[in-house]
């Protein structure tokens, strides 16, 4: 059995932290992920539990945004699972068909579980900030297209 390095951390907290970074890994473009994190995993020999596998996830939506659920269509997703040299399992799930991206996400998931929470957080904060910045830039462009419509008075009887 693997070394239980996180016995003192309540399970929910670990899950919460993994939940956050797995989302950040999936949303960060591969090039940026490699730039910030590749060296973290470069030194290790990982055991492949599931070589990168491409597949589909059916996307669910709700009528009117909040009503009856329905299946809107599928998206491509690639997943991968690894075991680190010290026995931690890591999983990666990323949208698209990039196998390298899924593999790096899985390796990082394993490695980050072995770091202290503050070390891991520092790394994730950097990536997360970059994501928020990109989204904000996109939205700021759209914000320049915000309009106020005035209702014109019709006819001469005003």
């Amino acid at each position: 059995m693997p070394e239980q390095h996180k016995k003192d951390v309540p399970l929910d907290e670990t899950a919460q932290r993994r939940q956050r970074w797995l989302g950040v890994f999936a949303k960060t473009p591969l090039a940026a992920l490699e730039q910030h994190c590749a060296e973290l995993v470069a030194e290790h020999q990982f055991h492949m539990l599931r070589t990168p596998e491409r597949g589909l996830v059916m996307v669910r939506a709700r009528a009117g945004g909040t009503g009856t659920q329905f299946n809107a269509g599928e998206m491509t997703v690639t997943r991968c699972s690894v075991r680190s040299p010290s026995g931690t399992t890591g999983h990666g799930y990323v949208a698209g068909r990039n196998q390298k991206h899924a593999e790096l996400a899985a390796k990082l998931d394993a490695v980050l579980q072995e770091l202290t929470p503050s070390q891991a957080d520092a790394l994730i904060d950097t990536l997360d900030d970059a994501l928020s910045e990109a989204a904000t830039r996109r939205q700021q462009k759209s914000a320049t297209t915000r309009v106020d419509f005035y209702t014109m008075v019709r006819g001469d009887d005003a």
Partner: peptide, 17 residues
């Protein structure tokens, strides 16, 4: 289940396909 982090995952088929 909240997490399966503490379960040692075993391999399946050598070549899944």
């Amino acid at each position: 289940t909240q997490s399966t982090a503490d379960v040692w995952l075993l391999e399946g088929f050598n070549d899944p396909v």
